[in-house]
Amino acid sequence: MIEYLQKQNVDNKLIEKLEKYRKENGLFDDPRVIKPEFKYYGKEVLEESISALLAGKNILLTGAKATGKNVLAENLSYLFARPSWNVSFHVNTDFSSLIGADTFKDNQVTFRKGPIYEASTRGGFAVLDEINMAKNEAISVLHASLDHRRIIDLPGYEKIKLDPNTRFIATMNYGYVGTREVNEALASRFMIIHMPNITKENLDKLLADTFTKLKEEYRKAFIDMFISLQFKSENNEISTKSVDLRGLISAIETMQIGLNPYDAILMGIANKSFDEFEREIVIDTIKTKIPSQIKESIFND
């Protein structure tokens, strides 16, 4: 992973500081230190996020769909060699689902630890996914953990001080059903990084790294198609529904099984648009890049 940073020309001094942190604090044998399935590509964002985390700060990743927020969070946990816990927020998220609650086990009351409690006491990285889906009263229980106090105050228990290695990485999208504005008190507890749309160059690196046997001509065609859809979305010609990087990757994975590339792209990209007019625009864009029938294999043997 360090070589991956060097290939992206991440500042060498920053890499040296990260390597020092890993040597002093890395938990390489912990089962919760999980190697990410995909690498995040974006020099500036990597430098900003690594710098903030090395400084002991928490970060909030904002931006549109398909900008790689969750991928970046997974990469950061692995780069720092720290165990990670993922919390998916929703309207019913409450104190007990985050911190834990009393439960009855073996004929006695015991405390069932939640993911925030575990990450806080074990020096882990807590990924707070879609943090703007939760109600403010649920988020408020995190305030003392996220600011300079770095404590968890459990009613009926002693205050718990956070491990020095604990970090919080929150993600949020705007415009999804159920999302809301993040309040000022919460935003002030994070360093905020706006995630840009993936560039053509970085998408090429991602697909080349993920699908090593994919023929270059088809990789370029898929990239041109995705960037064209992204451009239409940026100009409000279509919504972001079909600008789905996960969908593109899933489509290529089904092509590896043997599905016709055009049909796979329809499943992974075009069919994400449920408005018929928009779907036709997406399909027309796909047709300009991907033939409906490809007789040869798109992968090298």
Rank of each mutant, 00 (worst) to 15 (best):
T103F: 11
L53M: 14
M172C: 04
L248C: 02
G156S: 09
G26W: 06
A138Q: 12
L60N: 00
E37I: 10
K220H: 02
R180K: 12
G63D: 05
P155M: 07
K13T: 11
A138R: 12
S140G: 03
S297Q: 10
E44I: 12
N12C: 03
L46V: 06
R122I: 12
V182C: 07
I298S: 04
K69G: 01
F226M: 09
G42N: 09
G178T: 08
L206C: 02
I116A: 12
E16I: 01
N165M: 14
N300M: 10
F277N: 14
F89H: 07
Y21W: 15
I169T: 06
L245Q: 01
R246I: 02
T93A: 05
L18I: 09
K20Y: 10
G178Y: 06
V33Y: 05
D147C: 10
D275V: 13
S292G: 06
N300C: 04
I198V: 14
L154V: 15
N92P: 01
G156D: 11
A270K: 02
S273T: 05
T285Q: 05
I290C: 00
P164N: 11
S88T: 14
K13Y: 07
A134C: 09
L162R: 04
A52W: 04
H194A: 07
A52V: 06
F211M: 08
L229Q: 02
L5T: 05
S88W: 07
R112N: 14
L128W: 12
Y41R: 03
F226Q: 01
V109Y: 13
A270H: 01
I223S: 03
H90W: 09
V45C: 03
R189Y: 07
N9P: 00
R82E: 09
A55G: 13
N236Y: 13
Y40D: 05
S242D: 02
P291W: 07
E47T: 09
A73T: 08
S97V: 08
S233M: 14
R167Q: 11
F190M: 02
K135R: 14
A52C: 10
F104N: 13
I298V: 14
T110W: 10
R180M: 11
I252H: 01
L146N: 04
L207G: 00
Y78M: 11
I238A: 00
I298C: 05
M225Y: 01
M255F: 02
F38R: 10
I15E: 03
S97K: 13
T110K: 15
K289S: 03
A66S: 15
A185K: 03
K57D: 08
V182I: 14
A187E: 13
N107K: 15
H194I: 00
F104Y: 15
I257L: 15
G178P: 07
P196D: 04
N58Y: 06
L207W: 03
D11I: 06
M195P: 01
K39M: 12
E3V: 05
R149H: 12
Y262K: 06
G247M: 01
M1P: 08
Y117T: 09
G114P: 09
I257G: 01
V45P: 05
I151G: 08
L207V: 03
E16L: 07
